[in-house]
Simulated assay, not measured.
Amino acid sequence: MRLDTPTLLLVTVIVTFVVGTLFLLSWSQDRTARPLAIWGVAHVTGAAASGLLALRGVIPDAASIGLANTLMIGAYGLIWSGVRAFEGRPLRLDLALAGGALWGALCFVPDFYASLAARVILASAIAGGFCAAGAYEIWRGRAEALVSRYPAMVLLGAYALVYVLRIPLALLTPLPTNQDVMQSAWLAILCFVGMLFTVAIAFTFMALTKERVERVQRQAAETDPLTGIASRRALVAGAQALLAGSDRPVTLLLFDLDHFKSINDAHGHMVGDGVLVGFCCLVQALLPPGALFGRMGGEEFACVLPDRDVESALRHASQIRAAVARLSVPSLPGLAVSVSIGAAESAAIGRELDALLRHADAALYRAKRNGRNRIEVSAALRAA
């Protein structure tokens, strides 16, 4: 089957322009997603470059060769810049546009412009370099687990390889003359591969953006906005997973800051919020690795200690209670902070979270009733 280059170029123009428009429309719905805007401009620029290439022989060569390839190389630079923006790194638009600028400047050198091999080698090296650099930037951001990250990296790497292979081919195989270039299999294959790349990269980059938005939303739902610790929803889900995943003992601690309403009334809600944040920082510093700590609501917090019997958990609880009692703010000499703690253990109660919460809550209520600033264990542990 013979690939018709002018038709492929026309289809490439349409597909690339539509992809660029979709990127820009997506960006218009979320102006904070700057990579979408950059990728949109890159694809619209690429569509313009393909349109100029398609007019080879109809318009002056300065436009269909010099300007077209300058725009195309610039488009690849912008794709790389969009990837850097996606990964939270500086855009480096100077480097992104330098490749196209170098090409355009060399087109004014007669010896370079007259050599099709030199033009192919330079354009392939720059475009392939931008694709490889984009793949590397995505790989550098692998600490952020996104499902589409590795497909995007492989896609950009594969397209870089296509350009790299053009370099030895340009040196070892005969190239078409300027008059026959529109009928060249080289250009047809490159157009076809470029069109596939455009569609694939659009799906992949859109998927990356969508996955990040969903990840941020999920993190927001799982994080308490004031203290930065786990929300009730995240804590419950984590606790249930721990209880279901092992037969080893699990201890639940419930914390309640004593007289917290009085702190708010006497010192204001900003001080109250500061107390909550300070309490969380202190507890996180004293808890052992693997502990789940979250905010149940208001001034009540919970901690799940996996692989800890009640004696070990109570030692940590005692350290926390004593450390909280020592909290002080020199500018607020009247501020006193203490915490009451209730404990329940799975070995005595069972591995249902609701049952553990009920017993720990009853123990916490008993600590409040018996004078606050103390630790009480569940009735099942006291009976044992």
Rank of each mutant, 00 (worst) to 15 (best):
R215W: 08
D265F: 07
P225N: 10
V277T: 10
I229A: 04
A239G: 03
T223E: 06
D256W: 03
A239N: 00
F279V: 08
G238E: 07
P249R: 08
L243F: 04
L276N: 02
V213C: 01
Q217F: 15
A220M: 15
A221Y: 07
A220V: 12
G274H: 05
A244M: 10
D258G: 11
S246Q: 15
H267V: 09
Q219Y: 04
L242V: 04
C280W: 06
V271S: 11
G278N: 14
V213G: 01
N264F: 04
S231Y: 02
V216C: 08
V277D: 04
V277L: 02
D265K: 02
Q217P: 07
V250F: 00
V275N: 11
L235E: 02
L226F: 03
K210H: 14
S262N: 13
R215L: 10
D258V: 03
A221V: 09
V275P: 08
V250E: 04
G272L: 06
A207Q: 15
V271C: 10
V271A: 11
M206V: 13
L235A: 01
F260R: 02
D256M: 07
D247Y: 03
E211R: 04
F255I: 07
V277E: 00
A220Y: 12
G238Y: 02
A239C: 01
A241H: 14
G268P: 03
P225K: 08
L243E: 07
P225Y: 05
F260S: 01
I229K: 08
A241E: 15
R215M: 11
G268M: 00
R212E: 04
A237Q: 15
G245L: 10
A244P: 08
E211G: 06
K261S: 03
G274R: 06
D273Y: 06
M206P: 12
D224H: 02
R248A: 15
G272N: 05
C280P: 01
D273G: 05
T209P: 02
I229H: 07
N264E: 09
V275S: 11
L257C: 12
K210L: 15
A221R: 12
N264R: 06
A244H: 10
D247E: 13
V236M: 14
Q240R: 14
T209I: 11
